[in-house]
Design a protein around this nucleic acid. Structure first.
Lengths: 274, 274
DNA sequence: CTTGGTTGTTCTATATATTGAATAGCACTC
DNA sequence: GAGTGCTATTCAATATATAGAACAACCAAG
């Protein structure tokens, strides 16, 4: 069972986005790409159109355009479409010019080695979700498998508490989002709010088996600029194992890594100004 | 100096694609994404429009749509656009359901270990280019750095000779493409044709310092179906080092790995037929 | 402070992308 | 072999995305 879940992008959502935008074809194209990404096997025109609430002919034109751009592959025999390798090229280009990754990776590697935990670097995307952009596996212990590019709802687990703590969102917004989350051991909203306050004073957040039973997650926010944190460093591991290798030390290491990263990222910006 | 080069996608090309397509916004969007990928730093609306020959207002709408889809990031302060992490999500999804990668990776790892070479798995995209989709570094020697997602012109180096040898393209097509290639030590078209013939009879191709002086590249084709090869396994290394660790053995290993891979990939297809 | 040359953004007429029905093909069942 | 239900695809009318100019906001130089 895979853990990640997106804000269910329904036909309704797509329809609204398409209406508002001045370039609806692009919203449709993105929806098609996401659908093909989710799907286990290649899909035909009708299946895609039905799933996304598109007109088949429009959907066909979208697919042809995407195939021309090598973002989608087309099998002439089966008339099925799937994602194509062109998306890889874009991803590499993004990774290349992303200083967060370059700076975070060695820090994550060191922490993973020291504490035998699986370390993640995540990028926050408002209250919608966060995206895993860097990973370091400890190698020895059994890993909690997550992959680069995975998306999680914004307020879940330890990082969710950080986002809530340092993002100054209204309580109404938070509660609305909170109510849609799925946890193994869901905290009440009151409990969660208290943990968020604690995170605000401590500078990091902990999830002790709420999101996944038996798994402890620690998260510390990273800033690229003043305002809401843009990223977070995350440590995950089996609760008992993390306790044995020293949870307080891990928390300290994580927080100081996150702080040094924030300094470097903000510093680079000011270097551009000169 | 980076080696890769794309078929220079000029404004002309884009203009033609846009005209032909029934969904021009998508071609524009793809062009914008590629441009942002190439660019070292974030770009403004005008710069993008100028570079791609787009109308600024249209360009703005494209960018806004892409930003809505989290494929492009927008900095409200500087009004600059760049690639966003959404492209990572798509790439991961592509990698997940790609059996070539799953099957090729262990073979590449073994060959890289045995021969101290940098191994690549590439996917061919017609006569336009090929894309690196899997990598295994030997770890010990200093690596010839290439990254997943890199694009190379189709007919370059050893893999180019394989594509020409097993793709049954007309000589006119080949010569047109061949003439645009950049090599360190360019072969004449006649020499190259001879090497292509050799590759056809041997079942693999070698590039001895043509593409990059001092670097030897060996490539063996992989088929996913009858017809043109869809992929290739590639070994690269310093010429002298490869000779020392046994070039004939490397060639044998590469060819047999490619053959076994072809069998598995085609076998899956025939399994679908039953 | 004004001027000149940028930039990003809004606005509206018109060329055109999108729609939904009609067409064409393919694989079954009867 | 005709019929049934599915596909993918084409086509022409119309709703609309786009182009180009006008606008606004900024910065640097005089």
């Amino acid at each position: 069972m895979t853990r990640q879940q997106h804000a269910a992008s329904t036909d309704q959502d797509l329809a609204r986005t398409v209406k508002r935008s001045k370039a609806p074809a692009i919203s449709r194209a993105a929806a098609v790409l996401r659908l093909l990404g989710k799907s286990e096997n290649p899909l035909g025109v009708q299946a895609i159109a039905r799933e996304l609430g598109l007109v088949p002919s429009t959907c066909l034109y979208v697919l042809r355009a995407l195939a021309d751009e090598e973002l989608v592959s087309f099998d002439p025999d089966t008339k099925r479409y799937a994602l194509e390798a062109g998306v890889l090229t874009l991803a590499r280009q993004w990774l290349r010019r992303n200083q967060f990754n370059d700076l975070a990776q060695p820090l994550l590697d060191r922490l993973a080695q020291t504490f035998g935990a699986t370390m993640l670097g995540v990028q926050t995307m408002g209250l919608d979700h966060m995206i895993v952009v860097a990973i370091s596996q400890s190698g020895q212990s059994f890993q909690l498998s997550t992959q680069i590019g995975s998306r999680f709802p914004a307020l879940i687990s330890a990082t969710g508490r950080c986002i809530a703590a340092f993002g100054d969102y209204s309580e109404a917004e938070l509660e609305a989002r909170f109510s849609t989350l799925r946890w193994d051991e869901p905290p009440t909203f009151a409990e969660w709010k208290q943990q968020v306050s604690l995170a605000r004073t401590q500078g990091f957040a902990v999830d002790q088996g709420n999101y996944i039973s038996g798994v402890t997650v620690v998260s510390a926010p990273v800033w690229k600029a003043r305002g809401k944190p843009s990223h977070a460093l995350v440590a995950t591991g089996i609760g008992s194992a993390l306790k044995r290798s020293g949870l307080p030390e891990l928390q300290d290491g994580l927080v100081s890594a996150a702080r040094s990263l924030s300094n470097q990222l903000c510093g680079d910006v000011s270097a551009d100004w000169t």
